[in-house]
Simulated assay, not measured.
Amino acid sequence: MKTRVFIAALAAVAATAMPQAATKSITLPPDGVQLKESILPGFAKAQASCVACHSAEYMRYQPPTAARPYWDSMVKRMKVVFKAPIDDADMPAIVDYLVKTYGNEQGK
């Protein structure tokens, strides 16, 4: 019984002694650029995975002559380096969408 009272008292002291973490809120500006719509399955996957972290404008600034290996390495880089929440199974569809919409396979 004494141990429980001591632990409860210790927890109460610790709770008052430690400053409470301040809750912060960040409001991002509206994104003026959206992903180019497509019937490709990778479009919805890119909306869910890519623009959750960065603007769709990022894709517009990539070289329009970029081939499939470039886009494949970019998607892998986002996942490995930046820890983007991309399922391995979704990567080929996202790459296909990106190369056909923003890369050297546009219009194919």
Rank of each mutant, 00 (worst) to 15 (best):
A46L: 10
M1L: 06
G107Y: 09
H54F: 09
T65E: 13
H54Q: 10
T3I: 10
G42P: 04
A14H: 02
A89L: 04
S55N: 11
I94M: 04
V33C: 02
A56Q: 09
K24W: 10
P30Q: 09
K2I: 14
A15L: 15
K79E: 03
W71D: 02
V33L: 02
Q47R: 12
E57W: 07
A11W: 02
A67K: 14
T27V: 15
I86G: 01
M74D: 00
Y97M: 05
Q106H: 06
Q106N: 06
R4Y: 07
D87C: 02
H54R: 08
P30N: 09
V81M: 10
I26C: 10
M74E: 04
V99R: 00
M78K: 04
V80W: 00
M78H: 04
G103F: 01
K100S: 06
C50L: 09
R60D: 15
T3L: 13
A89R: 08
A84R: 00
T23G: 09
Q47W: 05
W71Y: 11
W71P: 05
N104Y: 01
I39S: 12
Y58V: 15
M74R: 08
K2W: 13
V81P: 00
Q34D: 13
Y58E: 11
S49K: 03
A12P: 01
P85H: 09
A52G: 02
K76S: 03
A89T: 09
T65Y: 04
K2M: 09
A21E: 06
I39W: 03
F82G: 00
W71A: 06
A15S: 12
K108R: 12
R68I: 02
Q106E: 02
I94T: 04
I7Y: 08
H54S: 10
M1C: 07
Y58M: 14
W71N: 03
S38E: 08
G32N: 14
G32W: 10
Q47G: 15
P69H: 05
I86M: 04
V95Y: 02
A14N: 04
D96W: 01
K2D: 08
K2Q: 12
